[in-house]
Design a protein around this nucleic acid. Sequence first.
DNA 1: CAAGATTATGCCACTGAGTGGCATAAGCCT
DNA 2: AGGCTTATGCCACTCAGTGGCATAATCTTG
Lengths: 244, 244
Amino acid sequence: MTPEKATATAPERGAGRAPEAPVAALPLRERKKLRTRQALIDTALELFGEHGFDGVTLDRLCEAVEVSKRTFFRAFSSKEDVAMAPTQDLWAAFLDVLESRPPDDGRLLALLAGTLTEAIDRMPADGWAERALASRRLAARTPSMDAHGLAFCERTTREAVSTVTRRFALDGPAAVAALHTRLAVDMLVAAFHQAMDGWVAQPSGHTRADLARRLRTACAELPGALVGARLGRAGGRPQGAAGR
Amino acid sequence: MTPEKATATAPERGAGRAPEAPVAALPLRERKKLRTRQALIDTALELFGEHGFDGVTLDRLCEAVEVSKRTFFRAFSSKEDVAMAPTQDLWAAFLDVLESRPPDDGRLLALLAGTLTEAIDRMPADGWAERALASRRLAARTPSMDAHGLAFCERTTREAVSTVTRRFALDGPAAVAALHTRLAVDMLVAAFHQAMDGWVAQPSGHTRADLARRLRTACAELPGALVGARLGRAGGRPQGAAGR
DNA sequence: CAAGATTATGCCACTGAGTGGCATAAGCCT
DNA sequence: AGGCTTATGCCACTCAGTGGCATAATCTTG
């Protein structure tokens, strides 16, 4: 009723995560929308973290942010959507970087890994890591979020494949190239998941830099997993655990 | 109300997909339950195929099978679930085979691929391929099914990793072995998806054998995707694919 | 700066998925 | 056959998500 709706909640958290547009210098209307959106994300992550994803109804969330449910669904496509905003922002940046990256002569996988690393770098320094962490921890214990996350990942993968196909020429017959592209992106995703899992699991030190480091490590392990992963001779000396 | 509920629909389609139990020789009660389940699957695939996933309400489906909605939810955990039964059966068989497979000295990925091939072989010869095809085509145009499918795949992957970890010793440090195992399973999944996509896309010849063949092909391409996928010199001769 | 065109929001009613409780009927066991 | 177990049907309910329409805010133009 009163003019200020979302203004009350999340008062000065201006730092948005708009990939390319400078936050200010936007029409007032847009800025307001972004603020509402961000307030919904922050409040949602907070409430979900406290009471669990299923323990908070949309009505409750909307009430907390002082926004109608109708408005919520104009900003997000589903309840899961709002809780996955950090991940979605990352991959949106990934596609963005991929789109503008100069052609390369090296390996496709290296190109993709570099692109994702740069995307991580582009995330806002202020609160992204915290939000991403909260989001991932939530997803880990919320099946429906996990499902939506996977679906989003799949959509993104397809888009990445399409972009790569359009922008970068691959050696070999077209059919084989298509196969390789898809598999390469899948491998990047697998490595990223691996990195994310480790990153989330650690007790502290959740920085973007550390996530990027873990991504590099996981990518470096890919060849080993493919070529080197041999089954042991059932009882061979367990020098295995010594390594770490 | 009348005693025969699901008997009317899907009268003689006895061939279930129970992985290990002989269909007959089960308590009557169980057989009835299985019949209802199968009737729900068949009718669902039929109705969904005709009117789209969102074009059929559960009430309509339940009415067609003459079963109450409550009963539906005792057989399936969600609307998506019923439409994904074929895929779920396949992976259940995969885990089953993996559990009872003798240790091996070769590559992990080869072991996994062989296991999945055997699982494909175990699917009922009569109608599985048709159901799987209908299910996949439906999933392709139904986001929520896609999401659920991915989530199921993820759960299965975790279980497979856990089984491999328990039953097969891997060379190398434990942490690296865990990494390799997960990545190897992910690669198998990627290859399987690739195979499935091609299989579904072809106009005819949807047999289990052909699916298995496509799986082998996709697995064979994995090394190429990892090691060989080089970005072309923008016109350099395509000798890249030769390496295999 | 005022008036009109845009566009976001709130409110209301509605569909449809999914759940819990309880009575009943079917299959099961002895 | 009679009692036990378990599946089913029915009913009422919660909650996610949508469409329509009136209102109010922002933007644009003269």
